[in-house]
């Protein structure tokens, strides 16, 4: 195949990827969502969006929830990873197997009993109820444990000689050395939280607690679906993740590629 043909195919594929985003942007700027010719762009749909849902609140919810959830997952997972890699305690292997077992249970099995549990604790329609099931990640523990095990033990021992305890060794020796793995896990956790839909849909009721995916989903159906407003909401919710993606693109893609290479 000639190089030109190859590039032509790549460009067509790129257009197929980008065109839906472009059409979304155009639709959001057009009254009723149907771009006319000549183009008559207006920001009216964005104004209506702010009136249809408490948009800034929803955006803030998404940012805070994703940040808190990601931060807690990174903290709890890296601590457990250190525990499994560096501490000796009875039944360690058995405990680790239980951790792995929880990794296999899919959300759809958990969603109903979790809802019932949250109702018992009176946490339905609260931030706590939304966040509680996302503060720990068995995947994170497994993934980061691999990274901790690759840190040479001589480095901890040197710190121990200097009189450091486990907390110090963890925080000032191990954590800095597993930074690449932490970054990878942070990206995965943040994307998962930012895009989460099923659990927020089940646990939340009030617009003021909603995260972006949920807020957007409720937009359709309101006043027989104003597609220009829905598209405006899509544009605004893609923008933040787009910025993060453009800044961290290489790292994001490298992280995904690495998970496929065993």
């Amino acid at each position: 195949m000639g190089n030109r043909l190859l590039y032509a195919a790549l460009v067509v594929a790129g257009l197929v990827t980008l065109a839906p985003f472009g059409w979304t942007l155009l639709s959001s700027l057009s009254d009723g969502g149907v771009p006319g010719w000549p183009l008559d762009p207006s920001l009216g749909a964005y104004g209506d969006l702010l009136r249809a849902i408490p948009f800034w609140r929803v955006l803030l919810n998404s940012v805070v929830v994703a940040a808190v959830s990601t931060g807690l997952q990174v903290l709890t997972s890296s601590m457990a990873a250190y525990g499994f890699a560096r501490l000796d305690f009875p039944l360690k292997d058995a405990v680790f197997v239980v951790y792995l077992a929880t990794l296999m249970v899919p959300m759809q099995v958990l969603v109903v009993p979790l809802f019932i549990e949250m109702r018992t604790f009176d946490l339905v329609d609260t931030y706590a109820g939304l966040l509680a099931p996302t503060v720990a990640s068995a995947f994170g523990v497994f993934f980061l444990r691999q990274a901790v095990r690759q840190v040479p033990r001589e480095l901890d021992e040197a710190a121990v000689m200097d009189g450091a305890g486990h907390v110090r060794v963890f925080a000032s020796v191990v954590l800095p050395l597993i930074r690449p793995a932490l970054a990878t896990f942070t990206i995965f956790a943040f994307m998962a939280s930012w895009n989460a839909f099923l659990w927020p849909l089940v646990i939340l009721r009030s617009p003021e607690f909603m995260t972006l995916p949920l807020g957007l989903a409720t937009l359709q159906g309101q006043f027989t679906t104003r597609w220009d407003v829905v598209m405006a909401g899509s544009v605004v919710s893609v923008l933040p993740i787009l910025v993060v993606y453009v800044l961290a693109q290489r790292h994001v893609i490298a992280s995904v590629a690495r998970t496929g290479l065993k």
Partner: peptide
């Protein structure tokens, strides 16, 4: 104490929000 300090932050939520619902789901 050290083991608990390092494991409890992940073990407690995993028990509460994965293991308990899993058993609960079977029961229901």
């Amino acid at each position: 104490g050290t083991v608990v300090l390092f494991l409890a932050p992940s073990a407690v939520p995993l028990v509460l929000f994965t293991l308990v619902p899993m058993v609960g789901s079977l029961w229901v």
